[in-house]
C-alpha cells in the first residue's frame, strides 16, 4: 500500500517533469511571441510581462502569413488526397488479392522511401525547371504524394488486413461483387484506418522542409519556407521569430493534439497492437 503510493508520487513527479521539459521549448516560444522585442531578450528571462500582439502584427506585415498558410493547407491536403487515390486501390489489391509477389512489392515500395531526397534533388530540380513547375503548388503536391505513397500504402495495407476475412466472405456469399464489397463493406470498415493514415500524411506534408525549401521560393511556398526566412535575424527579433513560429505550428499542433489517438494507431504500422 505505502510503496504503491510512493510509486505513484514518483511517477507523477517524473512523468510531469519529463512532459514539461519536452514541452518547454514550445511553451517558451509561445510565451516569447507575446513579448515585446526588449522583453524577449531580457536576462534573466522574464515569465511575467505585459503581453502584446505587436510581433504578430509585424510578422503579418513583413510576410503575408495567410498566403503561406493557404499554400501549406492546399499542398498538404492535395498531396494527401493524391497519395490516397493511388494507395487505396493498391493496398486493397495487395491485402485481398495477394500473389506470390505481394510481399516483395511491399518491401520494395518501402525501400523507395529509403532513397534519400538529396540523392535525386539535382535531377528533380532540373526536371522541374525545364517543366516550368518550380515554385508551383501542383509541383509540390506531386512530390509530396510520391514521397508519402510508400508509407500510405503500407499503413492502408495493414488496416485492410485487419478487416476480418470472414466478413468479406460472408459478403461474397451474399452476392457482393468486387465493387460493392469495396463500397459497402471494406470502406466503411476501414474508415478509422484511412483517417489515421490521412492524418499522418497531412502532418508529414505540413512539416516537410526539404523539397519545399529547394523547390519553392515565394509563390507556392508553404509555412516551412516562410519560417526559414526568419533564420538570419539575431537577438532583437526573438519575439517576431516566436510569433511567426507559433502561427506556423499552431494549426498542425492543435490538429495533432485532437487526433493523437487515431494517429497512434497508424503510426505503429500495425506492428504494435
Amino acid at each position: 500500500m505505502r510503496s504503491s503510493r510512493r510509486q505513484m508520487l514518483l511517477a507523477t513527479v517524473l512523468g510531469w517533469g519529463a512532459a514539461l521539459l519536452l514541452f518547454f521549448p514550445i511553451f517558451w516560444m509561445v510565451l516569447t511571441s507575446f513579448k515585446s522585442e526588449i522583453a524577449a531578450i531580457a536576462t534573466p528571462p522574464q515569465f511575467l510581462f505585459a503581453p502584446t500582439l505587436e510581433s504578430y502584427a509585424e510578422v503579418q506585415e513583413r510576410a503575408d502569413y495567410l498566403h503561406f498558410a493557404l499554400n501549406s493547407v492546399l499542398i498538404s491536403v492535395g498531396g494527401t488526397l493524391l497519395a490516397l487515390a493511388f494507395a487505396i486501390p493498391a493496398a486493397y489489391a495487395m491485402a485481398f488479392h495477394p500473389t506470390a509477389r505481394t510481399r516483395s512489392t511491399l518491401l520494395w515500395m518501402l525501400s523507395t522511401k529509403m532513397l534519400p531526397p538529396v540523392g535525386v534533388l539535382v535531377p528533380i530540380y532540373l526536371l522541374f525547371r525545364s517543366l516550368g513547375i518550380l515554385d508551383t503548388r501542383s509541383g509540390l503536391v506531386v512530390i509530396y504524394a510520391l514521397m508519402n505513397l510508400p508509407i500510405v500504402v503500407w499503413m492502408l495495407f495493414t488496416f485492410f488486413k485487419e478487416v476480418p476475412g470472414e466478413i468479406l466472405e460472408a459478403g461474397r456469399m451474399d452476392g457482393a461483387r468486387t465493387g460493392s464489397e469495396f463500397w459497402h463493406l471494406l470502406l466503411p470498415l476501414s474508415v478509422p484506418g484511412i483517417a489515421s493514415t490521412a492524418l499522418l500524411s497531412l502532418i508529414l506534408c505540413w512539416n516537410e522542409a526539404f523539397w519545399s525549401l529547394n523547390l519553392t521560393t515565394s509563390e507556392a511556398a508553404p509555412l516551412t519556407t516562410f519560417i526559414a526566412s526568419f533564420s538570419s535575424p539575431q537577438g532583437l527579433f526573438f519575439a517576431k521569430l516566436s510569433a511567426a513560429s507559433t502561427i506556423a505550428v499552431a494549426p498542425i499542433l492543435v490538429f495533432g493534439w485532437l487526433s493523437q489517438r487515431q494517429l497512434v494507431r497508424g503510426l505503429t504500422f500495425g506492428a504494435v497492437k
Binding site: P164, E166, I167, E169, A170, G171, L185, L189
Partner: peptide
C-alpha cells in the same frame, strides 16, 4: 460462420 461475420 463461426465468428458470425456480421457486418459491424
Amino acid at each position: 460462420f463461426q465468428s458470425y461475420a456480421l457486418y459491424p
